[in-house]
Amino acid sequence: KYSDMIVAAIQAEKNRAGSSRQSIQKYIKSHYKVGENADSQIKLSIKRLVTTGVLKQTKGVGASGSFRLA
């Protein structure tokens, strides 16, 4: 599940300011076997996790910027 992968990526990075979408994508692609549409799936999952309150956006708008666990 992409949401689990995103949470794992943010936990692994341990950046106080949060993790960027690009760094999350890079982590997921190197640690998991994902399909061609992974980028758009990650983007959608990040937006969903922010609206449900699992992630907090520290910089930027939408799916860009930095995110950390709430």
Rank of each mutant, 00 (worst) to 15 (best):
N15T: 06
L69Y: 06
A9Q: 01
K26I: 09
K26G: 06
A70R: 06
L44V: 07
S66C: 15
R68A: 11
T58S: 09
V50S: 02
S66Y: 14
L69D: 02
S3P: 15
I28P: 01
R68T: 13
Q41K: 15
K59T: 08
S23V: 05
G35R: 04
E13S: 12
Q57T: 07
S19R: 07
R16Y: 09
A38W: 06
S20I: 03
K59R: 10
Q57F: 15
R68V: 14
L69N: 05
A70S: 08
S20H: 03
G60D: 05
E36K: 15
Q41C: 15
A38Q: 04
L49Q: 01
T51H: 12
S40K: 15
M5G: 01
K59L: 08
S45C: 15
V34L: 06
I42G: 01
S66Q: 11
G65S: 14
I10T: 01
M5T: 00
V61L: 09
E13Y: 08
N37D: 13
G60L: 06
I42C: 03
S30I: 09
L44W: 08
N37T: 06
K56A: 08
A63I: 09
D39F: 06
S19L: 11
I28K: 01
S23Y: 15
G35A: 07
S66F: 14
K56P: 00
K33D: 12
G62R: 06
S64W: 09
K33F: 07
F67A: 03
I42M: 02
A12I: 03
D39E: 09
S45T: 15
I24S: 01
K29N: 05
S23D: 10
K47W: 15
E36A: 13
Y2K: 01
E36S: 12
V61I: 11
Q11E: 08
K26V: 08
V34R: 00
V7Q: 04
V7D: 01
N15D: 06
A38M: 07
Q11H: 13
L69I: 09
H31R: 05
T58K: 05
I46G: 00
A17G: 13
A38Y: 06
K26C: 09
G62A: 06
G62I: 05
I6H: 02
M5Q: 02
T58P: 04
I10M: 05
K1W: 10
A8H: 07
K43V: 13
S66L: 15
R48E: 11
D4R: 12
S30T: 11
I10L: 08
S19C: 14
I42D: 00
K33R: 09
V34D: 02
D39C: 14
A8D: 05
E36L: 11
Q57R: 10
Y2I: 10
T58L: 12
A9S: 03
T51S: 11
Q11N: 09
S64F: 09
I10S: 04
I42E: 00
V50K: 00
I6S: 02
G53F: 04
A63M: 11
V50I: 08
Q41T: 05
V50R: 01
S40N: 11
E13D: 11
H31I: 05
E36T: 10
G18E: 04
E13H: 08
T58F: 08
I6F: 00
S3K: 10
Q41A: 11
K56Q: 10
R21C: 15
A8E: 10
G60W: 07
L69R: 02
V7R: 05
Y27R: 01
Q25S: 13
Q22D: 11
S20D: 06
G53V: 03
S19H: 04
I24F: 03
M5F: 05
I6C: 03
Q57E: 11
D39M: 08
M5A: 03
A17R: 12
Y27D: 01
E13A: 10
A12S: 08
Y32M: 04
G60F: 05
D39V: 08
R21F: 15
I46E: 01
A12H: 08
T52W: 08
I24L: 02
G18M: 06
R16Q: 10
T51E: 14
R21I: 15
S23F: 12
G65W: 15
V61P: 12
R16T: 10
S23I: 04
I28T: 00
R68L: 12
K47H: 10
E36Q: 12
K59M: 09
R21P: 08
